[in-house]
């Protein structure tokens, strides 16, 4: 464990909690892509099946359980409790265009052709694109609530910190996982445009709105 991985995980946790609190406090999931949240729930479920097969540390196990629990709680709030506020018309990204190619890629390119390993690979590939329905929704409506942008910023920060973590691990532990690194870099690139808008608009006190 190094400081970059730890702060990355905490930033990820902060993002998840910010989103849950936003929905809970405003009693509304307006502007939130339920499809992205379902994808994240699938990501955590398929990746953390190793909870049943291997123990790494108390930290590792508890974070996995918290991530999975929060992901399903978020999906529950969006599709059940506050369903009336869910903006389904604007959440029109076709997720099958992500899930099907990602599934195929996981079967073709993996470290080991075994059931758990393919599911792990699938989750890594899927996570790298799971935010696209959310970004698509923002580009469609042309705006995002400030709290939603804080959520996205924490998620993007988590990815950026993981890249620093991999550089660290490469130099100091001779560790690298090419699948995780390539997918992680792709995922981080997807946030670049958003980072630019966040710094130039949200941090200057303006609402994030895109030119028509």
């Amino acid at each position: 464990m190094n400081i970059f991985r730890l702060t990355g995980d905490l930033s990820h946790l902060a993002a998840i909690i910010i989103l849950l609190l936003k929905i809970w406090k405003t009693r509304s999931c307006a502007g939130i892509s339920g499809k992205s949240q379902i994808l994240f729930a699938i990501v955590f479920t398929t990746r953390y099946l190793d909870l049943l097969s291997s123990f790494i540390s108390l930290y590792n196990t508890s974070m996995k359980v918290i991530y999975i629990g929060c992901a399903y709680a978020t999906v529950y709030l969006i599709y059940m409790k506050f369903r009336a506020t869910y903006d389904g018309n604007h959440d029109s990204f076709r997720v099958e265009f992500l899930v099907v190619p990602v599934g195929g890629l996981a079967v073709l390119i993996n470290h080991d052709f075994s059931f758990l390993e393919i599911l792990w690979t699938f989750s890594i590939y899927l996570e790298s694109v799971a935010i696209l329905p959310q970004l698509f929704m923002i580009s469609k409506t042309g705006e995002a609530e400030t709290i939603t942008t804080h959520y996205l910023f924490c998620l993007g920060l988590y990815r950026a910190l993981y890249i620093v973590n991999w550089i660290w691990r490469y130099y100091f532990e001779a560790f690298f996982d090419l699948i995780a690194i390539v997918a992680g870099v792709v995922q981080t690139i997807l946030y670049c445009d958003f980072f630019y808008l966040y710094v130039t608009k949200v941090l200057k006190g303006k609402k994030l709105s895109l030119p028509a």
């Binding site: 291997s54 974070m63 470290h111």
Partner: peptide
């Protein structure tokens, strides 16, 4: 590269 079967990252 080194094959990873135990994934210690989240």
């Amino acid at each position: 590269w080194q094959r990873q079967t135990l994934h210690d990252e989240l």
